[in-house]
Design a protein around this nucleic acid. Sequence first.
DNA 1: AAACTTAGTGTAAAAATTACACTTTGAAAA
DNA 2: TTTTCAAAGTGTAATTTTTACACTAAGTTT
Lengths: 248, 248
Amino acid sequence: MVQKNSIISNPNVSVDCVVFGFDGADLKVLLVERYGRDNLDFQDDTLVLPGDLINNHEDLNEAASRVLYDLTGLTKIFLQQIGAFGSPKRLSKPKDIAWLDAVRMNPEARVITIGYYALINIKNYKVRPSSFAKHVVWRAYDEVGELGFDHNDILDRAIHNLRDQLYREPIGFELLPSHFSLHQLYSLYNEIMGGGIDRRNFRRRMLKTGFLKETEEYQEGVPHKPARLYTFIPEEFENASKNNFKFY
Amino acid sequence: MVQKNSIISNPNVSVDCVVFGFDGADLKVLLVERYGRDNLDFQDDTLVLPGDLINNHEDLNEAASRVLYDLTGLTKIFLQQIGAFGSPKRLSKPKDIAWLDAVRMNPEARVITIGYYALINIKNYKVRPSSFAKHVVWRAYDEVGELGFDHNDILDRAIHNLRDQLYREPIGFELLPSHFSLHQLYSLYNEIMGGGIDRRNFRRRMLKTGFLKETEEYQEGVPHKPARLYTFIPEEFENASKNNFKFY
DNA sequence: AAACTTAGTGTAAAAATTACACTTTGAAAA
DNA sequence: TTTTCAAAGTGTAATTTTTACACTAAGTTT
């Protein structure tokens, strides 16, 4: 168990965030263009998840929150840890090695990253004129290609955890405005879960949970019958439906 | 996102394992007495989860496997990551600080740990005459008291993940001998899930899954009708019951 | 006024879940 | 050898949950 005389060099530890948003039709992921730390001129066209090294005295969740704050200006973002990624072979793609070289990092250097996923209401997100706004891009989940480092692995775990959690906890609201139509909610579930949800059954089931409250507001500016807007009551979830919540 | 000129000192990274076993009645956890790295004489009576710092070039899972191998002599143990624990305040209990002092570690030093949980067949476990066998103890889950460091937090996450996974994947078999009675399996589920499972319904449901195969063996040495033994067929789970598996 | 588009609604059949008690079998005791 | 003991093994009916499915209502545009 103890490993007596081997020399252990401490790895760098970073956080990387999979930020999900929903535009009404597609599940989107926030990506950034890779840049060089202390060498900001260097840049390849590789997309990566937003992330950063953790600071001393910083909680892991705090580090993830900080990354999100820098990126969006938002605090109190829904955030969930999905695990640690630490294979020494994380950085093996030629482009990754070129990047390491450009930023003068030792390719042998070990980086462990803690993955998070976050849900944000895409409308609340404002490009930050400071920071890295100009390099930030929303990309449809289906169209995310190859990312740098091992970020596709992190994304895989993130979508898996998202589906898992969406199935069992009322977290979908994090992706929507505070007042939303049942159609918006339906589209969100149907999209994330991969389709096949019955519209009528979904509606009944959602309303039966008791944690949606109807408002007196209606959709505006649509060329057809406007839908009633609802709002989510977290307390009702906590109390009433003691974990019987389930969706498809 | 980038944090320009702050000095970042790399934390130590360790793995800690919650090793579960089942003795037929209780869910057990494997604990070790804390000792001092490079100072093996120092020891307090505090129990902790088995763990170690990761080596260079070692995958996180490899590190966890190594810890388990050192402890049990077993390879190919069921192992599941449960996440990273990295609050800078992890080491705040007086005893923990005394320990850090005794082993000459800087109390400011940052340690991030990756938690795992493992399932082993308690009968296969042999105390290793080398290593730390004399300090190893199986403790009933209900009777684990206060552990050192933040290991109670890790244990909480582990039991939560175990229940979650047991509910959805056929992992209970990892805790049993390869041939087992339905009663053993029932006790295991009932114990881990916190009781209340109907014996007859459980039996029917389990057999209906199709991934239990009956053998021609029977329980021996019991003072009553001996139960038939079954065995688990992983392939049947993979193919047939495409994720429809669910228990209580 | 007609056409278009999405909102909004109910029911019946099938499947899954739950609750529940007696008979069988082998070993041990009388 | 008979009785007793302890756990093994078995089935059904009621309830609940899930699924499949199509038409009317309402507001906007043409």
